[in-house]
Design a protein around this nucleic acid. Sequence first.
RNA 1: GCUCCUGUCGUCUAGCGGUUUAGGACAUCGCCCUCUCACGGCGAAGAUCGCGGGUUCGAAUCCCGUCAGGAGUACCA
Length: 505
Amino acid sequence: MSVRVRYAPSPTGSPHVGNIRTALFNHLFSRHHGGVNIVRIEDTDRSRYVEGCEEEIIESLQYVGVEWQEGPDVGGPSAPYRQSERKGTGLYQPIIDRLLSSGAAYWAFDTTEELSEMRDYQQINKQPIGYYGGVWRDAPSSKVEEARAAGLPGVIRLKIPRDETIVVDDAIRGRVEIASNGVDDPVLIKADGMPTYHFAAMVDDQLMGITHVFRGEEWISSAPKHVVLIKALGWEPPVFVHVPVIKGKDGSKLSKRHGDTACLDFRRAGFLTEALANFIALIGWSPGGDRELMTMDEMAGAFDIKGIQPSPGIFDIEKLSWMNGNYIRQKPIDELAPMVRDYSFCSENQAYWETKNPAVASAMRLLVGTWQKDPDLVKSAIGLEQERVTSLAEFGTACEFFFVDEVTFDPKAVEKWKGQEHVPKMLDAFLEFFSGKSSVSTSECESLLRQFQEANGFDKLGPIVHPVRVALSGKTVGPGLFEMMSVLGPERIVRRLERAKEVLA
RNA sequence: GCUCCUGUCGUCUAGCGGUUUAGGACAUCGCCCUCUCACGGCGAAGAUCGCGGGUUCGAAUCCCGUCAGGAGUACCA
């Protein structure tokens, strides 16, 4: 039997990384088995529908590199792929009729007040809270007909059997047994006629031939309801794979107060597709052994449900950053440079940093502005910063000193070299060397500084290099000085040296 | 309250009854490389495998209990 899996988000907000991780597992699993991955939009709750959300879902999926063969955007043999549209085709009706006539489901006309009173009572009496039948589960058909004729708003509920053990087979945890008496009767069809998740998802999974259902762990407690439903319909349940949740640093479920959680925020923050995908796949999944840095192909090749951890994992942004830096370093410069340019140019990314850290946003704009005038300068600068940066966003601030007209001096750096005897003399000598030149090579710069070192009796290069670095970049840290000088070029060097003479005098 | 799930270094994890003085990675610290930072290399520290009982010649690995954390408990998904 060929594998068919589905990612079934509801369009209620921008997808969370945990959610997208489930989508990634679907992708990896279907690729591993040469199966089909389906995207299905679960939009049965009209009150929670968020406009534009479907686009964000698609974008998030594309960002992490998830591919699908059937979905609302590409169509497919099981179309439509939005539950609201599926409902419109009337495909749920015959199934619900079957359930009703076999007695597996029943109409219930409780009002919201009655339901909340019931829960209060259960709460006070320390009983399990939920709907276990009320007056409708076994009501005579005449009473139901009466209520329907009177036009009372009613729902259709699934009749969970009494005194039985419901078995849920979970591919990660194994066999889970639940006493049916603790499972309440779920609503299948709401008063507005829309199906609930419990009903629509199970029916659609069946109709779409889904073989494995990957979903969040939070679904495990409603899984018994799903197996009862499926059995009542005479179907074979799919393999359930309840993937563990992702938690924040403090151990609670990942949420807004942990910082970024929406998948697309990570793109805005400057994380590479490869890094995010690799990182989230490894929260909760391990290929076994010591493998960590993996391409999508490698992950798909190694993917196995047995490698999925049953325990929840914590999202560690530090490790993500390390991975991101790793992938950035691997990029050939011809690929990296345009990537940094596009990233920095994107107004959505700039807006993101504008609220998070305006200095980063302005550095990004400066990078783009400079690119338009002198792309080679920017490319070279990116090349020099490539190995000391951990996100696309950092290139702006890291390269900033290359692009500014006037460097910002780090007071501590100035403090250290200001007034040192050899400094003014050295600056003058170099000024003279660079004046009128049109370009310099790295090796020319190196020999210039080394000659000065020897001529002036310094046994180390430090006292020469450090003040010059401060003079040219304003900072104490950065790329190799000679490479930096070559990239800056004589013209900028001269201008900066002149200004530094005053500052460091 | 009720039900279910989970529990190996701070974090992600390897481990599937003996090859384990529990391995790797991130983070931390130190050394080396070196013009600084970073990269890279080497090394240190860090888990008596939640705890308590069993089973066994032998348990992180199997069983029971216990505690802790999490999830669900909607006409939301």
